[in-house]
Design a protein around this nucleic acid. Structure first.
Length: 357
DNA sequence: GGTAGACCTGGACGC
DNA sequence: GCGTCCAGGTCTACC
């Protein structure tokens, strides 16, 4: 099997950094617990290739990318870029160091990189399919989108549908075969915007776009509200805003010990992480992720079809009860000392989020 | 600016 | 096995 390798930073761990965000459980991604490898198919221009990404034991070892067919030098270069995006190896190392400086809780384990998709389009659709639906529904929608509209590599691995393919798909097909429900027209409209590279998409893809304009532009996309906009921002490497949802409320109640209405708790969660400023999302996310791992075991042991579908409100409640978490205990995370992380004379308040009822 | 209700699917639960 | 209820974020109409 042809292969190539990708150099990694000294502390890089594939298992830790792939299994750092729920999208590693969504098709076409397939994490092998046994092999500790990630496989899927990638679209290289007009061609498809299946990849199996693995890392020899030991942090910082180069990543090995196995391919299911020979590729040209140009195709290899595209695959290399797509994989680097997924693994956030394209993110500046200085950002990782800055994050650990602001929130040293994650320095020892090295957590900083959040898994994402090879393309912004896939990230946006994964966000849309995670809105107003429980996690097993999101798993299902992504699996069916890949099966119905995706393409197969020589070894049978699936790609995520391209914007062009989805733009051509009938709403009825998405609704009945992919079970996306009322999201059908929104998905097609988004696919058309990406396929035509509308001005909004160019603004979003432009790394020099200021956060406020990016947020505003994301909110103008069909199916994108405050939660989705903030989530897409973190997927673009802009970590200042929190995608607050029912999980945030659960975290606020069960881990941070907050009481009150959902709205009040969301506001307090927002205020709690505000001192982390441009790193707020990563502090928030790893705190939640560690809580999930406490309930379900290390993420690199999660199977897409078993553990991966366990994330329902009632399952989490049962697990929390079984873990003996008991009544919520007030908890103050060892965050940044306010004087260092947010000098009083340098306060930058993120815009208040419009939170769902 | 804030809020209520519809949107759609699948899991949970009671019978 | 069937019926009902509920969870989930966005969008629109309305106040």
């Amino acid at each position: 099997m042809p292969s190539f390798s990708i150099k990694t930073p000294a502390d890089y761990s594939l298992a830790r950094d792939v299994c750092s965000y729920g999208y590693f459980l969504l098709a076409p991604n397939r994490w092998s617990v046994k092999e500790q490898s990630l496989s899927r198919a990638l679209v290289l221009g007009k061609e498809i290739v299946g990849v199996v990404i693995s890392q020899p034991k030991g942090r910082g070892k180069p990543i090995r990318v196995g391919l299911d067919r020979p590729v040209s030098a140009k195709e290899k270069s595209i695959a290399n870029d797509l994989i680097r995006r997924m693994l956030r190896l394209d993110e500046d190392e200085a950002h990782v160091r800055a994050f650990h400086k602001v929130d040293p809780r994650w320095k020892r384990t090295g957590r900083a990189r959040l898994f994402r998709s090879p393309s912004l389009f896939e990230d946006v659709l994964k966000t849309i399919t995670s809105c107003n639906v429980t996690w097993p529904g999101t798993v299902q929608m992504n699996r069916r989108l890949c099966e119905v509209v995706g393409k197969q590599s020589p070894s049978g691995l699936l790609t995520f549908p391209t914007p062009a393919a989805l733009a051509r798909t009938r709403p009825q097909t998405l609704r009945s075969r992919c079970r996306v429900g009322y999201r059908d027209l929104r998905i097609i409209e988004l696919a058309r915007m990406f396929a035509k590279r509308d001005p909004e998409i160019r603004i979003i893809e432009d790394s020099s776009t200021p956060d406020d304009l990016l947020h505003e532009t994301l909110l103008s996309l069909p199916g994108v509200g405050p939660y989705a906009a903030a989530n897409i921002m973190q997927l673009l490497g802009r970590y200042s805003r929190l995608p607050l949802d029912t999980e945030s409320v659960r975290h606020g109640r069960s881990v941070l010990g907050y009481t009150g209405t959902s709205k009040q708790i969301m506001r307090r969660v927002h205020e709690h992480f505000a001192p982390f400023e441009s790193h707020a999302f990563r502090s928030y996310w790893f705190e939640m992720w560690v809580h999930y791992e406490k309930l379900q075991g290390p993420a690199h042991t999660w199977e897409r079809d078993t553990t991966g579908t366990m994330f329902t409100a009632s399952q989490l409640k049962k697990l929390a009860a079984a873990a003996g978490s008991g009544p919520p205990k007030p908890h103050k995370p060892p965050g940044p000392t306010p004087s260092r992380a947010r000098p009083e004379n340098n306060v930058r308040r993120t815009r208040p989020h419009r939170t769902p009822a």
